[in-house]
Nucleic acid binder design. Structure first.
Lengths: 123, 123
DNA sequence: TGCCACTAACTACACATGTAGTATATTCAT
DNA sequence: ATGAATATACTACATGTGTAGTTAGTGGCA
């Protein structure tokens, strides 16, 4: 089995759209993304072609166009990228990473409680 | 102020060495890294040159060689990379990211307690 | 029925990155 | 003083990425 293709920076928003809803024609993705990210239509098509080439999305013909759908799961991608991030930035140490995120100011009280519940389950 | 230079994948291990101890001559870095990462000496020198060029490390002459030292702090780099990771992978949502890490199997009981203490402080 | 609009395919191009080889300058030991 | 070892500088090159222009096919409307 060929290892998971990895996603580049800008491929993530595209894949997120496909994970949310698929299959989708290029047109819909272009509409959504030219808006969200202000990319040129051809840029998005190029990225779709590359994603297809690297095995991240599949193509199915439909009428006179193609529908795109993900071939790799969001969970796997997130897991892989998280692991890579952990290695790169923290040399693989999970605890400091978690502490960093936990200390950041952006958690609401509610989220903190939720997180603690998960941790309780593991303790 | 020019925005923080960002570090590529392979630049992190180099910077980690410099953050641990600096200044250091190229030689020491090469010794450490050819071992840890099995890189060619010239590869490491090229990376040092690029890090210097992008303003991530400084150079100070010492005897017949150069000493390298970081110009950017580990904390800032980690913060920047963590934020970029969060945006890329989770679309900026901190909670799911934390949950993902917290659910991963690799935390020891001790680490879980420590983490909960940090969260308690914020609740 | 000929042209327009739209799809998809192909081409382009600069910059970053990983990975080194080559060349030049300096120095230390014999 | 000269040759070997080092240190630094410069060059090379394939691949990935961001960004888009150009070309060709085709179905539907005027």
């Amino acid at each position: 089995m060929p290892s998971q293709p990895t996603l580049s920076n800008k491929e993530w928003p595209l894949m997120r759209l496909l994970w949310e809803k698929s299959p989708q024609p290029a047109y819909d993705l272009i509409t959504a993304l030219s808006d969200q990210e202000s990319w040129h239509a051809n840029t998005i098509r190029t990225m779709l072609a590359r994603l297809h080439k690297k095995g991240a999305v599949g193509i199915r013909p439909y009428k006179n166009l193609f529908l795109y759908y993900p071939l790799i799961s969001e969970e796997e991608c997130i897991a892989a990228e998280s692991e890579s991030f952990l290695q790169r930035v923290y040399g693989g140490a999970l605890k400091p990473a978690l502490l960093h995120f936990a200390r950041s100011q952006k958690l609401t009280r509610e989220e903190i409680r939720e997180l603690k519940k998960v941790l309780d389950g593991k303790d």
